[in-house]
Amino acid sequence: MIEIEGITKRYDATTVVDDVSMVIEPRTIAVIVGTSGSGKTTLLRMINRLVEPTAGVIRLDGADNRSLPGYELRRSIGYAIQGHGLFPHRTVAQNIATVPVLLGWDAARIKRRVDELMTLYQLDPQAFGPRYPHELSGGQQQRVGVARALAAEPNVLLMDEPFGALDPIIRNKAQEDLLAIQKRFGTTIILVTHDMEEAVHMGDKIAVMDAGKLVQYAKPAEILAKPASAFVETLVGASEKPFRLLSLGRVRDAVETGTAEGEAIPGDASQRDALAELLWSGRPALPVKGADGKPLGRVTVDGLVKRAASPA
């Protein structure tokens, strides 16, 4: 659990982060969204004390984050940044092993962990371990960056626009990978982004920041349904709201009884994808299949349209 209490950061006369308080539950993903200059990155960097706050306290599992020297604190917290920041003079395996080496793990344990993470990220340890970062594609570099951040099995992972430099297709894959890995390790993730789409997709909760202040901190559905201010409303994008709301739900949860013609859609696809498919193919209903391929029922345009309406 991460408790942020009255955190303020001032540079001379400018207040970058203004009295922010929030609690991030363990094993969840909190996404901080905001425009550039909203203070979201500074807030993130105060959690691992890359920036020291002017006022306020941040507690990690009850312990003040100032109870350790900064560098020791940072070894216990994963940190992944935009453009990955891989060390160009070190191999992929050495990059991933950075924090474990700093912590003094023995060689066998480091190798086991590096191999495990590389396998998890679909990078063959034999083939990619000895390569240098510049020999990898952008998507592979990004994966190595996240693997490096996770290497020492941190409970908390901070990510600053980790997918910002990726093209849309690779970004999608990277987001799915991260969600899968978060489930597997139970890591608490705090992710900074300016992309509301990404925030709605990834976040258990979304924190919206504007001019250093925390404007709203709530579940994605609530942010969409009840934006706290005109700023949040703009950020959500009025015309995008119904679709974002649909993207939160799975097809499985919108299934009606009955049958329909044509190719079935998997139950764990998003309702937004289902609606898009319906509209595109001009059909009123689609069959739905479970993970085992068995039919679950169908989704209809009418049903989805009702779900896309404002819950208020």
Partner: peptide, 17 residues
């Protein structure tokens, strides 16, 4: 490169490291 130096700090390296 700024992001490499940032990553080194973020990984918990001391100034000397």
């Amino acid at each position: 490169p700024a992001n490499v130096v940032e990553a080194a700090r973020g990984a918990g390296m001391t100034g000397w490291q």
